[in-house]
């Protein structure tokens, strides 16, 4: 499939500024965002379980230029939502899709290795369909792919690009998402949950990687986190301010978040900040029967007004 995808990228290249995908990262275990402008650059293109980043995060920056983008199913939902929200123009993006079998969670691999992964530590890597072998210096560690796969992949409804101009490979069957993780979390009492978040957020270093990795965060220099005008947040190193930012982020994404999981993945201290957004996503699904990033033609529920919502019976007098 790699070669077929590379072929598709080369085919698209002449019409676009660049094609965004994945390329070699700092070590064999990690890929990095990759911007291909010349056909020879395509050779280094990487796809598979290591293509973890969501390349859609770069798209709004290219507004006004035509670009190509290689997307997993989850990434494609971000693109669709960007189009639905007018952040990206459909005619300015060429979407190359493929059936995704899931990506790895580096933190799970680190846990399997029993140590943090320092740069240069992993010397080589081999991947089969259900196994992953990591060579750290001279010792090889083989792990089940199922044990190191990202959580979001377990409930992936859209493994194939939702929208694509070029699709390479045979579409895969999607899974269902029953929000079991949320239900499990909500088993805890309110106090326990709050204690959990206080503990988690106390570790936050306010790097805003969660925000920067989010393909739907478009406030750029005017983000409430850094703006003094209006002065929603102060810079005090307090759990309260850190938590407050997450709550603002989650409400900003209510009915918009496509669940790509980049916020949690990007967090350098491993705070599961994606849970906040998943709560909103579930609410949007239950209240408005709406799933962000599945149809660029529908208007997100919080950006329109329906006289009567199908699930909210307010006229029964």
């Amino acid at each position: 499939m790699d070669d077929e995808l590379k072929g598709a990228i080369r085919k698209v290249l002449p019409d676009v500024d660049c094609v965004i995908g994945w390329g070699p990262g700092p070590d064999p275990l990690r890929s990095a965002p990759f911007f291909m402008r010349k056909p020879e650059e395509v050779d280094a293109f990487v796809v598979g379980p290591l293509a973890v980043n969501n390349p859609a995060v770069f798209l709004p920056e290219y507004k006004g230029k035509k670009v190509g983008i290689v997307v997993k199913g989850c990434d494609s939902r971000s693109v669709v939502q960007q189009i639905a929200e007018g952040l990206v123009k459909r005619e300015e993006v060429v979407i190359i899709g493929f059936p995704c079998s899931g990506v790895v969670d580096i933190q799970k691999i680190a846990a399997q290795l029993g140590q943090d992964i320092e740069p240069g530590m992993v010397t080589s890597l081999s991947i089969s369909s259900d196994k992953l072998t990591v060579n750290v210096k001279d010792t090889a560690k083989t792990m089940d792919m199922a044990d190191v796969r990202a959580d979001k992949c377990a409930s992936c409804q859209y493994p194939n690009a939702v929208v694509s101009d070029e699709f390479v490979g045979t579409p895969k069957e999607g899974k269902t998402d029953d929000y079991a993780d949320l239900a499990a979390f909500e088993e805890k009492s309110i106090d326990e949950r709050f204690a959990f978040w206080e503990q988690e957020m106390s570790r936050c270093i306010r790097c805003y990687a969660c925000r920067n990795a989010c393909p739907l965060c478009v406030c750029r220099d005017h983000c409430v986190a850094t703006s003094r005008e209006p002065h929603w947040l102060n810079q005090a190193d307090s759990t309260r301010e850190k938590l407050f930012f997450q709550l603002i982020h989650a409400t900003h994404l209510a009915g918009r978040c496509t669940g790509c999981g980049e916020c949690s993945r990007a967090c350098p201290v491993g705070i599961p900040v994606g849970l906040f957004k998943r709560t909103m996503t579930r609410a949007a699904a239950r209240l408005f029967d709406y799933q962000a990033g599945t149809n660029a033609e529908t208007v997100p529920p919080l950006q329109t007004f329906a006289t009567e919502e199908p699930t909210i019976k307010e006229r029964e007098w």
Partner: peptide, 27 residues
């Protein structure tokens, strides 16, 4: 105008057609 990213959400929600899109230095 510095904060506006030109996504047009405001234009869509306005019940009075009171917001229009303008071209500001190509944006």
């Amino acid at each position: 105008i510095n904060r506006c990213v030109g996504c047009g959400k405001c234009i869509n929600v306005c019940p009075y057609k009171a917001i229009r899109e303008i071209d500001f230095r190509g944006q």
